[in-house]
Each structure stands twice: as structure tokens, then as C-alpha cells.
């Protein structure tokens, strides 16, 4: 089992529904977020390229946040999901500094919080909240170890990229381009 998210930038309209759905699903305090939208514009009028995409924790296989965590609060569980155990987190912020995706924030209660791939929903056989709500259906989620899963097939057949590959983190959020 190796969970991965695949996001089709050709369909994403950047509406932020994923952000709101994550917030209401995971009780993310108002003013913070576990996922967010980025917009990149290239070129000059009228030859322009626009890329909109939903970003979050990349659930890296080589996760700097886990490596640098002094208490072991940041850890990787089955399926490759990077989690933070709030009770073990001392809020030192090393993981926040180490993350090349700026995916972590300090919760007002003191611990560090971030995307869990909606681990609690996966356990119930549901998709992450962001994936299940997306009006453009541009987000896909599944098991990369299964060569016939939707995500495996999309990565096999479509041109794609990951973010900050130079950081060597082996991220597991992929973008179709």
C-alpha cells in the first residue's frame, strides 16, 4: 500500500473548495489551512499560461519533517502517510522550517498540524474530504502499489510532475500537466 494523490492541473479552476472542505472536515481553525491554492502565470499578453493547483503535505517517502523531529511526533504510518501525534509534539517548529512545501503550521493549541490525507476517512473507506468535494473532479487518490489503480494509470499515461523534486523528498502528490 502506497497512498498517493494525483491532481489534474488542466481541470483545476482554483476555487478553493478543497480548502473549505478540509477545514470543516478536520476542524482546522479559522485563519489556518492544511491545503491551499497556488496560481502561476507565465508569458505575456496574449500568449499566457496559467496554472492553478491545490497544494498540501506531499507525504514524502524521504520526509525532512520526520527526520528532524526531536520527539518522534512526526512519523510515517502504513500507506506512507506522514502524521503528527499532537500529544508528542512540543511545538519546536523544526519540521515547519524543514518542509520545502511549507505544508505545516502551528495549531493555536500549540502542536504542529498538517494534511493527514484524511487518514480517519480512509479507515472508513472514504476518500479524503478535498478529493470527494472537488467540483471539477481534478483530484484522484489511491494506491500506487497497485498498478491498475486510477492513480497508477494516470501517472503511467499522462505527463506529470512533482513539486520541488530537487529537494529529494520523494513526494507523493503528483500534478498532471
Amino acid at each position: 500500500m502506497r497512498y498517493a494523490m494525483v491532481i489534474d492541473t488542466l481541470k483545476c479552476v482554483g476555487c478553493s473548495d478543497c480548502v473549505v472542505a478540509c477545514q470543516t472536515e478536520n476542524d482546522v481553525p479559522i485563519g489556518y489551512c492544511r491545503d491551499w491554492i497556488t496560481e502561476t502565470v507565465d508569458g505575456t499578453y496574449p500568449n499566457i499560461l496559467l496554472e492553478l493547483k491545490s497544494e498540501r503535505c506531499n507525504h514524502c517517502a524521504n520526509a525532512p519533517c520526520v527526520r528532524c523531529c526531536p520527539t518522534g511526533a512526526s512519523h510515517i504510518v502504513e500507506g506512507g502517510i506522514v502524521l503528527v501525534t499532537a500529544e508528542e509534539c512540543i511545538g519546536c517548529g523544526a519540521c515547519i522550517e524543514s518542509c520545502p512545501y511549507d505544508a505545516r503550521y502551528q495549531h493555536p493549541d500549540g502542536y504542529v498540524d498538517k494534511c493527514t490525507f484524511c487518514h480517519h476517512r480512509l479507515q472508513k473507506g472514504q476518500l479524503p474530504a478535498c478529493v470527494s468535494v472537488c467540483p471539477t473532479k481534478c483530484m484522484y487518490f489511491g494506491d500506487l502499489d497497485n498498478p491498475n489503480s486510477e492513480v497508477s494509470l494516470l501517472l503511467k499515461n499522462r505527463k506529470h510532475k512533482t513539486l520541488a523534486p530537487e529537494a529529494g523528498t520523494d513526494p507523493h502528490v503528483f500534478y498532471l500537466i
Binding site: G31, C33, E39, R67, G91, I96, S98, P100, D102
Partner: peptide, 23 residues
Amino acid sequence: MIASRRKFIKISALGLGGILAST
């Protein structure tokens, strides 16, 4: 105190911070 305390919401191109490259 934590330096990077991200508030809503980043609509900008990704900027890379300091990266630890050890393995």
C-alpha cells in the same frame, strides 16, 4: 516560537525555503 506561522492563504508561486538535503 515558530518562525513560519502560515496564515490563510497562499496564492503565489511556490518559494522554497531552506532545504535539508541529508538522507
